[in-house]
Each structure stands twice: as structure tokens, then as C-alpha cells.
Nucleic acid binder design. Structure first.
Length: 286
DNA sequence: AACACCCCCTGTCGGC
DNA sequence: TGCCGACAGGGGGTGT
């Protein structure tokens, strides 16, 4: 499910319920997700006030009082939902996969559900956030000021790996996943198969194609966030509603469909790169 | 360095 | 209807 727009959607949903409230209790329904929960997980969190909820790439970071951070990843199928503790109309979620329940001082309950259990939760000291797993080594924020064609050119000029793989690599840019890389490359009219270094000229400067890429990434991510993310299988918003951006895909999941670029007339192709589906228009993406 | 391939785990979908 | 393989938005590991 969750790439940057979905995680940001979840962050915005959780923020008003979490921030300013105190964690009254934490219930773990199992001992691990992708990894075991840290030792003393529930105890460390209990009675602590939440001071902020940030996003870093695809991670959510809850900043707690006394310099402790709860770093969460949704994996492929993780979702949060908020209830007021009363019986709610929740038809869609299989409660077997409710792994963590946070009860807040306000009475709100925040439940983490993750069927595939590829998600994670870690505790990290505030000052070590950028230097310790799981955030250590993460690349730049694609919606921050660092993402420029020049930055990408410098970073990728010696890389023969396909541009799609480079964009998926969280050590370069943090937050892009399979869907939005496909979408952004279509937006920028760049073939996902193109070696990254071939977007850089002999002087190490970005080519015209690469100059389109940063804005294409921003455009796609902002549009997706504005739609509440994409709901394909597991992504739901914290209030149980669906994101809508899946209806706006230009290429993802559209194998055999007509290219939506005006005047192109190409047919969307599917191929596999590094074991993952790539969708693109071979006619207008070069 | 950069591939290809494997794993983690569960659910869903299409084909037979 | 049921079974079975392919596939899924995540990350991490191996070996070549």
C-alpha cells in the first residue's frame, strides 16, 4: 500500500488525535511484526505525551516527551484507524490483524492493523533519529527543497542502473514506491528502463528530460496527497474512507490501455524490473 | 556496484 | 465450486 502520499494521508489523519494527547495504554496482540517489538515497548510509551507526528519518507515518527520517538512503518498492508472506543461501523477490517492498540487519554483508540505484518515499530532517541536504524541512510525528501535536477544529476551520473531502480532506492530519495515512480516517469516522459547516467550530459549537467523530473515527482505526489492517496488493496484512511488517486493513474495497472498523453496514441506496456512491475508508454517515454 | 534471486506473510484474483 | 499459482504498494538479505 503505502508510499509517501498514503503515509502522509495517514499522518494527517492521526495528527489531531495523537498530538497533545497522552498515551494511556498500549496493547500488543503479538510479540512481533516484521521484527520483534522493542523490549519494554508498551511500558516506554505508556503515560507519555505526544508532542508531534512527522513523516520521513515512508515512515511515521511520533515525537514523545522526554526525547523518545516512536518510528512506524506500514509495510505493504498496514493501516491505522481511529475509534472513539465505542462500537463503530467497521465492516472492512479483519480484526484478526489488529496488532497494536493505543488508548489515548482523550478516550480515542488508535488501532494498527497489518495482515502481512511487513510493518514495523521502533523506539529511537530523538537525537539519534538520523543516525540509527530505521531512518539512518534515508535519502532526501522529494517534497523538500533538496530535490533538484542538479542534485539528481550529481547523485546518479555514474550509475548505470535504470532510472526506475534508482528512484525506488530509498537511499536516494525517500518516499517513492512502485506506483509513484511509474507515474512520475510518465509525467516526465522518461523511460523507466533508461540508465540513470544517461539523464546526465558529459559535463555532469541534467539533460532536458531530467530537468522535467523533479517537478513531475512533486506534481504526482501532491495530486495523490490531495486525493487522499491510492486505495488498491489495503490503504484506507484513518477514518475508514478510501483514497481516490487510483482513479487518476496514468500508467500504473493500465497495461494494454491507451496512453493518456494528448496526441500520443501509444499503448501502456508492462515489464518487470528487479522483480517488480513497471508500467510505461514506450512511445512517449524515452 | 549492480544485478538476479530469495525471504518475510497473508489475501485476492484469474485460470483451469 | 475448489484448488493452485501468480501477484501485491514494503524492506532486507544472499550470491554472482
Amino acid at each position: 500500500m503505502p508510499e509517501l502520499p498514503e503515509v502522509e494521508t495517514v499522518r494527517r489523519g492521526l495528527e489531531p488525535v495523537l498530538v497533545g494527547a497522552r498515551i494511556a495504554s498500549v496493547t500488543l496482540n503479538r510479540t512481533d511484526l516484521r521484527r520483534p517489538f522493542p523490549k519494554g515497548f508498551a511500558k516506554s510509551l505508556t503515560d507519555r505525551r505526544v508532542e508531534g507526528l512527522d513523516r520521513r519518507g515512508k515512515f511515521l515518527v511520533a515525537r514523545l516527551e522526554d526525547n523518545l520517538c516512536l518510528v512506524m512503518h506500514l509495510g505493504m498492508s498496514g493501516s491505522f484507524r481511529i475509534t472513539d472506543g465505542s462500537v463503530a461501523a467497521e465492516v472492512l477490517i479483519d480484526r484478526r490483524h489488529d496488532h497494536v492498540i493505543f488508548k489515548m487519554s482523550s478516550g480515542a483508540e488508535i488501532c494498527f492493523n497489518d495482515p502481512r505484518r511487513f510493518g514495523s515499530m521502533d523506539l529511537v532517541g530523538n537525537k539519534r533519529l538520523d543516525f540509527e536504524p530505521p531512518l539512518a541512510g534515508l535519502g532526501i525528501e522529494p517534497l523538500g527543497p533538496d530535490l533538484t535536477a542538479t542534485w539528481i544529476a550529481e547523485r546518479l551520473r555514474a550509475r548505470s542502473t535504470p532510472i526506475k531502480s534508482a528512484l525506488l532506492d530509498q537511499r536516494n530519495i525517500a518516499g517513492l514506491g512502485n506506483i509513484y515512480v511509474c507515474e512520475a516517469l510518465w509525467e516526465a516522459r522518461i523511460s523507466p528502463l533508461r540508465p540513470a547516467a544517461r539523464l546526465v550530459n558529459r559535463r555532469g549537467r541534467p539533460t532536458l528530460s531530467l530537468q522535467r523530473l523533479p517537478q513531475a515527482i512533486r506534481t504526482v505526489l501532491h495530486a495523490a496527497i490531495d486525493s487522499g492517496g491510492s486505495s488498491l488493496r489495503n490503504h484506507i484512511r484513518t477514518d475508514g474512507s478510501f483514497g481516490m488517486f487510483q482513479h487518476s493513474f496514468s500508467v500504473y495497472g493500465r497495461e494494454g490501455g491507451r496512453c493518456r498523453r494528448p496526441g500520443c496514441g501509444g499503448t501502456i506496456n508492462r515489464t518487470v524490473q528487479a522483480g517488480r512491475s513497471t508500467f510505461y508508454c514506450p512511445r512517449c517515454q524515452r
